[in-house]
């Protein structure tokens, strides 16, 4: 059975190429995540999130990355279905040939990662795009500027009564804001719900951002989530343990001199990256 008329090798190469891009992104993501462990009340982490959320080059890459994820998954599914139908009658005794764990369960570990990705999107990505409500942060400087602007408007009598009252209420609210809604350096409002954003920053304030730091910490404090997270990264480790060697094989890179390097990179990815990710929930939980 063939779902699309492209050579099986071409499909594999495409799968590998998309996978390669995802591989390159992983250390970047890990780097940002590790900022969470810095004892600065989320300063670096928020700064990094801010950069990733606003930089235009990053935004372009984000589209590419999403496309890669999508294609990687679609091709993997196509390949798996086609391969399944290459043996319509299965064996009674399961194949016992010696193969690596990672290679055998590629589609399953991939599936686990894909499921996690959905959860991850719900938790973070959708929040960013306003599809789901999360926690938000806003720069006090910006809130102040917005307030000043409105205050001038009020003095000029440009505001309706309703908005005047709101502005006065906001003034009162923000002066009473508790310290846990502000970061260490008292430059940003943090840990705000949408309602609180309106309460402290005003109805029409738009320059708030998702507060990923708070959201992450909250999630990791949830034991169930952390355990799922850890399991997912074991799956990722397995996935990666096969991914890089397989990538080299698919792209035809096999050479006595370079093979040790490939093995090194493969092991680095399979062990260091998942461990790097896994440290975070462990550190937060305990």
């Amino acid at each position: 059975m063939k779902l699309i008329q492209i050579s099986s090798i071409t499909k594999k190469i495409a799968l590998a190429a998309f996978g390669l891009f995802l591989l390159l992104f992983l250390p970047v993501h890990l780097g940002i995540n590790l900022c969470i462990l810095r004892d600065d009340g989320g300063l670096w982490y928020r700064a990094a999130s801010h950069f990733m959320g606003t930089n235009y080059i990053v935004k372009v890459f984000e589209i590419v990355l999403m496309a890669c994820v999508a294609f990687h998954i679609i091709i993997a599914i196509i390949i798996t279905i086609e391969n399944f139908f290459a043996r319509p009658v299965r064996y009674k005794v399961r194949i016992k040939s010696k193969t690596s764990l990672g290679s055998r369960y590629m589609i399953w570990t991939g599936g686990i990662i894909a499921c996690f990705l959905v959860l991850h999107f719900i938790n973070f990505y959708f929040v960013k795009h306003g599809l789901i409500e999360g926690k938000y942060t806003a720069s006090i400087e910006k809130v102040d500027a917005f307030f000043q602007e409105n205050a001038i408007k009020m003095q000029n009598g440009e505001l309706s009564d309703e908005k005047k009252n709101a502005l006065i209420a906001q003034y009162q609210n923000i002066s009473e804001v508790s310290s846990d809604k502000m970061d260490k350096e008292r430059k940003n409002l943090i840990n705000l719900t949408k309602q609180e954003v309106k309460k402290y920053c005003g109805e029409d304030f738009t320059e708030y951002e998702p507060d990923f730091y708070t959201m992450s910490i909250e999630l990791f404090k949830n034991k169930t989530y952390s355990i799922i997270y850890l399991l997912v990264f074991i799956a990722l480790g397995l996935h990666l343990s096969h991914a890089i060697k397989s990538l080299a094989q698919t792209l035809g890179l096999s050479h006595k001199t370079y093979n040790p390097f490939i093995v090194f990179v493969a092991n680095f990815y399979a062990i260091v990256i998942p461990i790097g990710f896994a440290i975070i929930p462990l550190a937060i939980m305990f």
Binding site: K12, N83, A86, S97, K98, S103, M106, Q249
Partner: peptide
């Protein structure tokens, strides 16, 4: 040879090395 292999209905390689 590769296209014939595909046409005949063999599966693709997923580098398990069985």
């Amino acid at each position: 040879m590769v296209s014939k292999m595909n046409e005949l209905g063999f599966g693709g390689c997923t580098n398990t090395y069985a």
